[in-house]
């Protein structure tokens, strides 16, 4: 009985899925220098924006962001896209974020979501989780997990936005 009601509820949640085009919720994150930033102020001047949730302890996350880093200058040049990397590292590993980001020569905009408020507000289960936000600030696509090649799919999605 309980099980069936559980499944019914979860199933009805499934039905709600599909209302895409949501705006980015308003939460406060910190930049790498400790300054607070409102997530609704994240923008790319009318061009598409990638919001990627990652952590220094997450191997697939680093694989994804390091792979994209190789092609990022091309992506920026061709589409004007900006990648915002939101680290969910907590106090344990947060001090490694800044040296890791610089040590890896990343050109992303990086923010800290220490107590996972932004992650919770965006409905992220686990990392890596990538959102694509269009020029009007609406979430138009998302993908959980990373396998090599996923970056090509992401790029296709970006291209479809700027056409």
């Amino acid at each position: 009985m309980k099980l069936s009601s559980t499944l019914t509820l979860l199933f009805s949640l499934f039905i709600i899925i599909g209302c895409a085009q949501d705006p980015v919720p308003k939460v406060v994150v910190k930049d790498l220098k400790g300054k607070s930033i409102n997530t609704t102020d994240l923008s790319n001047g009318g061009k598409p924006m990638i919001i990627n949730f990652w952590a220094t302890w997450c191997a697939p996350c680093k694989r994804e962001l390091n792979t994209i880093a190789e092609v990022y200058p091309d992506w920026q040049e061709e589409t004007g896209v900006k990648l915002i990397a939101v680290s969910i590292d907590d106090a344990r590993s947060q001090s490694r974020v800044l040296p890791y980001v610089n040590g890896s020569s990343w050109d992303y905009e990086v923010y800290l979501d220490t107590n996972q408020d932004f992650k919770r507000a965006m409905g992220v289960n686990n990392v890596p989780h990538t959102f694509l936000v269009n020029g009007e600030g609406r979430i138009v696509w998302q993908h959980n997990n990373y396998s090599p090649g996923d970056e090509d799919e992401l790029y296709e999605q970006i291209l479809s936005l700027i056409e």
Binding site: S95, L98, P99, V101, N102
Partner: peptide
Amino acid sequence: STRGFGVS
């Protein structure tokens, strides 16, 4: 840290 190098 600087581009390509970081210590903590």
